[in-house]
Design a protein around this nucleic acid. Structure first.
Lengths: 109, 109
DNA sequence: CCGTATCCTAATGGATACTG
DNA sequence: CAGTATCCATTAGGATACGG
């Protein structure tokens, strides 16, 4: 088993797309609310700075999990939401949710 | 939707247990090889330092995903491997693997 | 409203030497 | 062999102000 092989293992590839303090939370918002305007998303996650929120959204966009839509009014309206690939995560999330429940896993304070 | 609620969403709780550069790789080794001596694991992941490898193992132990077994010879033999909870991750990993394959997702160089 | 720039702090990870 | 201690480098994230 060489090192390149283990580095590209599915779990690693998967987790790398979601590494970032706010990414899971962002996705959760989209699963619950569908597309959201940037400012509304920000209001839903008040603890993050605008800069970082944007950063994480860009990275999710690059992974093609999140889609950005801009309407060129002034001031501009920008919506973020799940792409098709993002939507396809739902069954994965549900399995994870089930695993969490079964294992009664609690996040640490 | 208040903030505490979204912070404890399953995806977030799940991902927090695996946040760490080497944790997914460590788990992959255990899934492939079963229990492993510390040094053998280290040889399988040559790019990580001993200190950090130990650190990540301890965190996985704390999440009860990994189990440590020590045999008190001299020099001591210490085995690391999946706990029952760790084993129960297998179906989750398989779904993730399937998702990765379907989406032909490639890790970035 | 949306995004960028700057500056700063905290957290994570790496190199190396040492011990039982 | 397994683990600890130190010290250092890199990165991620946060505060704030400004611009289109």
């Amino acid at each position: 088993m060489n090192y390149k092989e283990i580095e590209n293992c599915p779990l690693n590839v998967f987790l790398k797309s979601f590494s970032g303090k706010w990414k899971p939370i962002i996705l959760y918002c989209f699963f619950k609310n569908g597309n959201m305007r940037f400012t509304d998303l920000w209001r839903a996650i008040p603890a993050v700075s605008k800069k970082v929120l944007l950063q994480q959204l860009k990275e999710l966009e690059k992974s093609e999990i999140v889609q950005r839509t801009q309407i060129n009014t002034f001031p501009p309206e920008v919506f973020y939401g799940l792409s098709g690939k993002g939507d396809s995560l739902l069954p994965v999330i549900l399995i994870i949710e089930e695993w969490i429940t079964i294992n009664k896993y609690q996040s640490e304070p």
